[in-house]
Simulated assay, not measured.
Amino acid sequence: MIELFISAFVTLFVVIDPPGCAPIYAGLTKGATSAQRRIMAIRAAVIAAIILLVFALFGEALLGALHIELDSFRIAGGIMLFWIALEMVFEKRTQRREDRAEKIAADPEIEDVSVFPMAMPMLAGPGAIAAIMLLMNTAQGLDQSLVVLGALALVLLLTMLALIAAGPLMRMLGTRVEAVITRLLGVLLAALAAQYVIDGLRGAFGI
């Protein structure tokens, strides 16, 4: 159980990437008050939790309706996560997030960033959806499923706290430290993604 929790926590933490989301959120909410930033951070985390919970509970049924084998999804999900890892290592993911944030900030009509772009696609993006579905598939029984969901809840709680403390946190860490953390998380995610692909190939070919 402990190993499953650690594996699920690390995977989701790396994919959702609270250290990477915090500076973007700080930039998007520069003109907001502390209370407004806190409310939007809580709302973003709650909406992301609902989205990921739906895919965690019903994602396998959706794959069945589309006649997609779980091993195929493991391989596809692993490749997707590996691509995200490469972008994290080479900072392309951060650059894309910053570009998206600049577009949103440039539109004066958009004030509440909790739903878009924070909840979707920054927190509950394709990578996070693929990760939670893969983790729920590896869980056996109700106990292990609750462990995975507990890891998801903890990651989203930490993400919410990181968003709330985004401004002070970035002033304390600085952009260089944030870049180093993101790269380290990217390397770890690449290894986890490779394992997903290996597991999918083993299941598909009966190795």
Rank of each mutant, 00 (worst) to 15 (best):
V177E: 12
A45M: 01
L63Q: 03
F73T: 06
L4S: 05
V187E: 02
T94E: 01
M118F: 09
T175N: 10
S145E: 10
I132D: 14
R93A: 00
T33R: 15
G59C: 06
A32H: 14
K92G: 00
D112Y: 01
V54D: 06
A105I: 03
T94F: 09
P117D: 04
Q36P: 05
V10Y: 02
T94W: 00
L161N: 10
C21A: 14
M118T: 14
R43C: 04
A49E: 01
T33G: 15
L161K: 05
I6R: 00
A204R: 00
P19F: 13
E109L: 08
D199P: 05
T182F: 09
A8G: 07
P23N: 05
N137L: 10
L154F: 15
A45T: 05
P117A: 12
L149A: 06
R37I: 03
D99H: 07
I50H: 05
I51K: 07
A76V: 13
G174W: 13
A153H: 02
G31C: 13
G174K: 10
K92W: 04
A190F: 08
V89E: 03
V10Q: 01
E111R: 02
M160P: 03
L169K: 02
M1L: 10
A106H: 08
A191H: 05
E3F: 03
I79Q: 09
T33E: 14
L192F: 09
A194S: 12
A26E: 04
A35Y: 02
L149R: 00
L62Q: 09
I24C: 01
I84Y: 08
Q140R: 12
A190S: 02
V15L: 10
F55C: 09
V147R: 02
E102M: 08
I39K: 04
